[in-house]
Design a protein around this nucleic acid. Structure first.
Length: 425
DNA sequence: TCTGGGGTCCTGCTACGA
DNA sequence: TCTGTCGTAGCAGGACCC
């Protein structure tokens, strides 16, 4: 609890679904879900009316439909959600420059310096909820606390609830003063602590831990031996309400990736390579758009039985070239036997660094004599072509031009547009 | 609860150079 | 020259979050 400055955690309520209701007011009061509608799709967001039926995010779409036959299923429009998110974040920036977005629908705000001009943290929280409602037609929940961890838990407490009788409004704002931290934390379930998922919870249960209060009395050494150094220490501190992390605006991205679950498992390398090239094209395009290059190319393959393997290859020089990334990713894919049936394929770039211009290697310099025909000529020509494609897409959209290998059967080359929550029906 | 997609972070292992 | 050790980088897998 080093940070004495008040932190706000603002969390939009059922963001994607609520944005869709604002766009189409006829949906108000109806059970609405955003997600992939196909057999392998999942729910990305559910309105509170849908949650009454037991529907939650990450639930398979088939199950959601069986729980509520009248469910309104929408495919989702990521570009629009990004747009609305930008407007909401702009509202936050009116109160403090220290805004750290966590995702499209939530952010931490450090309002330590804002108090004198716009009121105390509680008043700021209230004002933010009012502006978001008036300007965007959306509701949000706000947690106010001495640090990020507690603020996030507090916003959760302020959320609307559902029961068999329907959705119920939440308090909207929950404040945890420094002297009430222990009383606030102790009764919460241990799963509420950041980093405690099903696996960790199972291990904690064996120690007799069910609440944060139980966790707080477990010695640090016990947690370290059970969960490892980093996680053990982190849990020990969080269970006591200790969190030193500051609000960091402008966090840089650490990896860029794209993965896709196929409507049916793919069995041959040819089809997989075809998909891979399309994915590489979109991922490399995003890297160029962001002005970053990557040193490590990763691929991920999930088989029909859900076993998942990853392969990584680190290059001598960072790159943002689709052709070069496709060559490396393709070589890794070639070594994998797809005959059991591949359900999902993914590509990601990591080891990112700022700057889109890659330094040419000696053997790529014109006149080096080292495979100049293959390297020195071919790569710069590819780069030129990729630059043209990027410019066409910026002007006319991602649908305007796609990679040949991606084919015309794919809906789009924009990962934000294409089957973001599993294959459609 | 038969399990998407985009991420981050951690751990354990291995290879390699000093 | 061989062996052991240490630090670091890379890889693979897993857990978790939204």
């Amino acid at each position: 609890m080093r940070s004495a400055t008040p932190i706000l955690h603002v969390d939009m309520d059922a963001f994607f679904a609520s944005v869709e209701v604002v766009r189409n007011p006829d949906l108000r009061g109806r059970p609405v879900v955003v997600g992939g509608s196909g057999e392998r799709g999942v729910v990305a967001a559910a309105s509170y009316e849908a949650r009454v039926f037991g529907i939650r995010s990450a639930m398979p779409s088939l199950r959601a439909r069986s729980l509520c036959p009248d469910l309104v299923f929408l495919p989702g429009d990521h570009a629009h959600y990004r747009e609305v998110s930008r407007s909401v974040m702009a509202i936050f920036h009116r109160f403090t420059p220290l805004v750290e977005p966590l995702s499209l629908d939530e952010a931490f705000l450090d309002v330590g310096g804002a108090g004198r001009s716009v009121g105390d943290p509680g008043e700021i929280a209230s004002e933010i909820r009012c502006l978001v409602s008036v300007e965007e037609g959306l509701t949000c929940s706000v947690g106010v606390a001495p640090n990020k961890f507690l603020a996030k838990l507090a916003s959760e407490q302020a959320k609307p609830r559902v029961s068999a009788s329907g959705p119920h409004e939440g308090s909207g704002i929950c404040t945890v003063p420094p002297d009430a931290v222990e009383a606030f934390l102790a009764p919460l379930p241990a799963e509420a602590v950041w980093g405690v998922g099903p696996r960790t919870m199972e291990r904690l249960r064996r120690l007799g831990v069910t609440t944060v209060g139980d966790l707080a009395v477990v010695p640090e050494a016990t947690l370290v031996s059970l969960l490892g150094d980093a996680v053990g220490r982190q849990l020990w501190r969080l269970a006591r309400g200790i969190d030193d992390r500051s609000v960091e605006p402008g966090q840089s991205v650490k990896s860029i990736g794209h993965e896709e679950t196929f409507p049916v498992d793919l069995l041959d390398l040819g089809s997989l390579t075809h998909e891979l090239v399309g994915m590489v094209d979109s991922v490399a395009g995003r890297a160029r758009e962001a002005g970053v290059t990557a040193r490590t190319v990763n691929i991920k393959v999930r088989f029909g039985d859900f076993t998942t393997i990853t392969r990584a290859s680190t290059l001598a020089d960072a790159t943002d070239s689709s052709a070069e990334i496709a060559e490396v990713a393709g070589a890794m894919l070639d070594k994998i036997d797809p005959s059991p049936g591949v359900r999902l394929l993914g590509v990601s770039l990591s080891g990112l660094r700022e700057g889109s211009v890659r330094q040419l290697r000696l053997d790529e310099l014109p006149g080096s004599g080292w495979d100049a025909e293959e390297r020195g000529d071919r790569l710069p020509r590819w780069r030129e072509a990729e630059g043209v494609v990027d410019r066409i897409r910026r002007r006319f959209g991602h649908r305007a031009i796609g990679h040949e290998a991606a084919g015309s059967d794919r809906k789009s080359q924009d990962p934000a547009e294409s089957r973001p929550w599993g294959p459609d029906s």
